[in-house]
Design a protein around this nucleic acid. Sequence first.
DNA 1: CAAGTCAATGACCTGGAGTCATTTTAAGCG
DNA 2: CGCTTAAAATGACTCCAGGTCATTGACTTG
Lengths: 207, 207
Amino acid sequence: MTKRQEIAQETRQRIYTTACSLIEKNGFANVSVEDITRACGVAKGTFYVYFKRKEEIVFECCKEWFSDVDRKARGHKGTIVEKLAFYFKGFMEGVTCGGVELCRQWVREVIDPADSPGEMCGGKYAYDHERLTAFLRDAVRDGLLKKNTPVEALVHIFMCELYGMMTCWCMSDTKFDPEEWVGRFAKLQLPALLAPYVKTHAEARRG
Amino acid sequence: MTKRQEIAQETRQRIYTTACSLIEKNGFANVSVEDITRACGVAKGTFYVYFKRKEEIVFECCKEWFSDVDRKARGHKGTIVEKLAFYFKGFMEGVTCGGVELCRQWVREVIDPADSPGEMCGGKYAYDHERLTAFLRDAVRDGLLKKNTPVEALVHIFMCELYGMMTCWCMSDTKFDPEEWVGRFAKLQLPALLAPYVKTHAEARRG
DNA sequence: CAAGTCAATGACCTGGAGTCATTTTAAGCG
DNA sequence: CGCTTAAAATGACTCCAGGTCATTGACTTG
């Protein structure tokens, strides 16, 4: 990497960091692109060298929420119910850690498939969706779930729950506790949903 | 009502109707206030005679979604699980009937308590919240649920589910079917959630 | 060192939200 | 029927923020 590219990377990073913290402090709508660039000492145009639209910065900021949720959950010992509970817990930890203003903007963007197809919503939704699908497929492969498990349908249900949680967290202005929610979901609802597909001990022994 | 007030009401109604249909056709962000006023043959300023902000029209459009969901559900015969399933079904019917673009804007507004406190989010959220709370309290009073039922907590869970459904419906661009979702929720998850609070036949007989 | 590349710039364009002084029109009254 | 009053309607205007693009000059390359 040449010195030039290094400087460019650093500029991009500075814009990204500044944007995240400003948005978290004041909310997406109350932070202008000029606010961001002024705060990190570059011209407005520079923002658009690195990001196509103002919204794109949110995608950047939120990507890391989910960066290794699935990897960790795979490593988690226990039943499929316990693994999934761990997955959800990790997911919501990422979200809450990112802050409510970023979460709000994420939801705003994700509900609208019309906004920049391909890169934004479609892509973002697919991101989680595929990750969770792969996770469940592996659980089937590893014998934690029966062969006839309707993976796609379950993924849809779980995505509904996760995004419902996010939406309500934003609505309640963080007063509601996602961790408690995940706990209850895992204890009451998850077993009911998975019951038909979880192998009994006898079945598991048979393979 | 004088002729003057009649005309004013009619103007307001015309703006409201035109706005709803334009938003549903093109999406909230792609409809300007001028588009709306032009389409119904009044000046831009007239819009602001009747609505404080562009967003306020959405509140108006969406209010009727929930107008008598609870009343109908109260009249529905059956167990508390069946009544609630009916409630949820009616709620989502209202939403889907209103159309995905209105639903999107509703979610956008509702997740943000900072936007016009009192009237908008706080009020809107409270609207559903209180309605469902009253519904569950009545179920307790009528002996469908035990006295120790944690009504507030249940309301929160249900609101999460409803808004999760709405969010996912918007995300999937209406591809996902809320009715099917409600059906499954009522069959698998609702009984698990309510189990500790539903009276047994013996308990019900004792009162 | 000359030519080429590319990050960075900021004046500029655009479009839409919301305002307000003014005009139009219905209502009330002698 | 005029005249006054008050409400409804107007549209030119301000303001602001997102996004563009021709230009600059620092760095790279041969």
